Simulated assay, not measured.
Amino acid sequence: MLSESFARGTSVLHRLDPRLRIVFATLMSILLAVSTAFPTLFTGLALSAGLVLVSGLPLVEVARRLTVVNLFNIVLFLVLPVTFEGTPAFLIGPLTCTREGLLLAARITIKSNAILMVFVALVATMPIATLGHGLHRLHMPKKLVYLLLIAYRYVFVLEQEYQRLHTAIRIRGFIPKTNLHTYKTYAYLFGMLLVRALARADRVYQAMLCRGFKGKFYCIHQFSFSWTDRLWTVFFVVALIVLGGLEWVPPAIF
């Protein structure tokens, strides 16, 4: 179950307007994703790490989330240097590791860590409900926003349904193996889960209609820009300009 542990905090980033955090996280992730210059990437990595420190999040928990991404990055360092064409850098037995392959793996590693830390510091520090209402205030399609909010609300209910069905087949002596009986059992399991999900969705919809639902969720909290938000807006804009300058302005100008 998603506990939203990062959403509980009192740091300055937790108190910023959600719309500002969503916009900057999106723009910075796009900018880092299309960047190739290492000065830009290292600056973005340092900036994202600084945001994590400012947010006051537990570094151990952040490191656990980064570990998942970096396990994939290790695979890239093992595969890309020997499969990407370019200038030979060194030999590992019969395999030739290219300089271009190493640089590509390094770029992907820096980008993935920087983007993940930006979203952890700015987006993961708000509840899902706040994220949904923030997207709605940014004029995202209402149906997508409502789908996000309802899916987050009921994904745990479906997980509980799956656990009950899985417990039921285990009580009846089911032991998973690599045979046709196991495949058919799991097919029946997911089919029954789908049937129960559809039935529950209909009951939930009828309950919402009984409570006056007319296709709109209301947010009690009113978003407003404070002086702190304005100061951080200036900081974020300057940060984006610096990153863009490092990427596209010739180095001789600096």
Rank of each mutant, 00 (worst) to 15 (best):
H139S: 13
G56D: 04
F24E: 08
R65C: 10
Y205V: 06
K216H: 13
V123M: 01
Y186S: 00
F6P: 03
T87V: 12
V195T: 09
R196H: 08
F217I: 07
L57T: 04
P176A: 11
F235M: 11
A46N: 05
V62I: 08
P141L: 00
D202F: 12
V242K: 09
L45A: 09
R211F: 09
V23T: 11
F235L: 14
A252T: 15
F223G: 01
K142L: 13
H166I: 10
V242R: 07
V82F: 15
R230W: 04
F6Y: 14
T125H: 06
H221I: 14
V195D: 11
V79I: 15
S55A: 15
M117W: 11
T228E: 13
L149G: 02
M140T: 12
G191E: 02
L189Q: 01
L144P: 01
G101H: 04
A197R: 06
L53W: 15
L180D: 10
S5N: 10
V238G: 02
H136A: 15
P88R: 04
Y205W: 11
Y218W: 12
L20F: 08
L144E: 07
R64H: 11
L20M: 03
I150S: 03
S11V: 07
K111V: 14
T228K: 11
P58L: 12
F42S: 09
F223T: 03
Y188V: 11
F84D: 05
L147C: 07
N70E: 12
S55T: 06
E247A: 05
M28I: 13
L147R: 01
L148A: 00
Y205T: 12
